[in-house]
Deep mutational scan, measured.
Amino acid sequence: TGEEYIAVGDFTAQQVGDLTFKKGEILLVIEKKPDGWWIAKDAKGNEGLVPRTYLEPYS
């Protein structure tokens, strides 16, 4: 389980392990790392690192 967040901007993977997403996408945050990069999963089940500055809590 995780917390749902909504993307407030588009993000394109910079390196292997990053997750590309579009503004408005709902992501499930699995782990919040202290460096500001969180592990998240998208609706298709893809998992990767995302920058927390692009996310806001979804309710």
Rank of each mutant, 00 (worst) to 15 (best):
V8I: 15
D18Q: 15
E31N: 10
E56M: 14
R52F: 12
T1C: 10
K44S: 13
L27W: 01
P51R: 07
A13H: 04
V29W: 00
V29T: 02
G2H: 12
T12V: 10
K33C: 09
E4C: 11
L28Y: 11
V8E: 03
V29A: 02
E56L: 11
L55C: 02
T53G: 11
W38R: 00
G9Y: 15
V29Y: 01
K44M: 14
A13N: 04
L49T: 13
Q14I: 14
A13V: 03
Y58Q: 07
Y58F: 13
T20R: 04
E25P: 00
K33P: 07
K41C: 08
G2D: 09
E31L: 11
V50E: 00
G45N: 07
K23G: 04
P57C: 06
L55G: 00
G17Q: 06
Q14Y: 08
L27S: 00
F11S: 03
V16T: 14
F21H: 01
G48F: 03
F21K: 00
I6N: 02
Y54Q: 10
T12S: 14
P34W: 10
E47F: 12
K22Y: 10
T53A: 15
G45Y: 04
I39T: 09
V50W: 00
A40N: 00
G17N: 06
D42I: 02
V29S: 01
K22S: 10
T53Y: 11
L19D: 00
P34Q: 13
T53L: 12
W38K: 00
Q15N: 13
T53Q: 12
T20I: 04
F21C: 05
E56S: 10
P57M: 07
F11I: 04
G48E: 00
K32E: 05
D42Y: 01
G36C: 06
D42R: 02
G48S: 01
G2F: 14
E25G: 04
V16Q: 11
P51S: 08
A43P: 09
E31I: 13
P34I: 11
S59L: 12
T53N: 11
K22F: 09
F21G: 02
V29P: 01
F11Q: 03
G2I: 13
F11C: 05
E31G: 08
G36Q: 05
W38S: 01
K33T: 10
I30G: 03
Y54E: 07
V50K: 00
W37T: 08
L19W: 01
D10Y: 04
V16H: 14
E56P: 01
L49D: 03
D18N: 10
W37G: 05
W37F: 10
I6D: 01
T1F: 11
E47A: 08
W38L: 03
L27R: 00
D10C: 05
V8T: 15
K41V: 14
K23T: 10
K33W: 09
K23I: 07
P57L: 12
W38T: 01
D10S: 09
K44F: 13
Y58E: 05
S59P: 09
E31K: 09
F21L: 05
R52I: 11
A40D: 00
W37R: 10
G45E: 05
W38P: 00
A7K: 00
T12Q: 13
I6H: 04
Y58I: 11
D18L: 15
E4F: 15
I26N: 02
G36A: 05
G24D: 06
Y58D: 05
P51F: 11
F11Y: 14
G9Q: 14
N46R: 12
G45L: 05
F21D: 00
Y54I: 10
L49F: 13
L55F: 04
E3C: 08
W37H: 07
T20V: 04
G36I: 05
G48V: 02
G24F: 05
G48N: 01
P34R: 05
T12C: 08
G45D: 06
L27C: 02
I26T: 05
Q15A: 13
Y58N: 08
T20M: 04
R52S: 14
L19P: 02
G24K: 03
R52Y: 14
I6L: 08
K33A: 10
K44G: 10
K23H: 07
G2R: 07
T1M: 14
L19A: 01
E31C: 08
I30Q: 07
G45C: 07
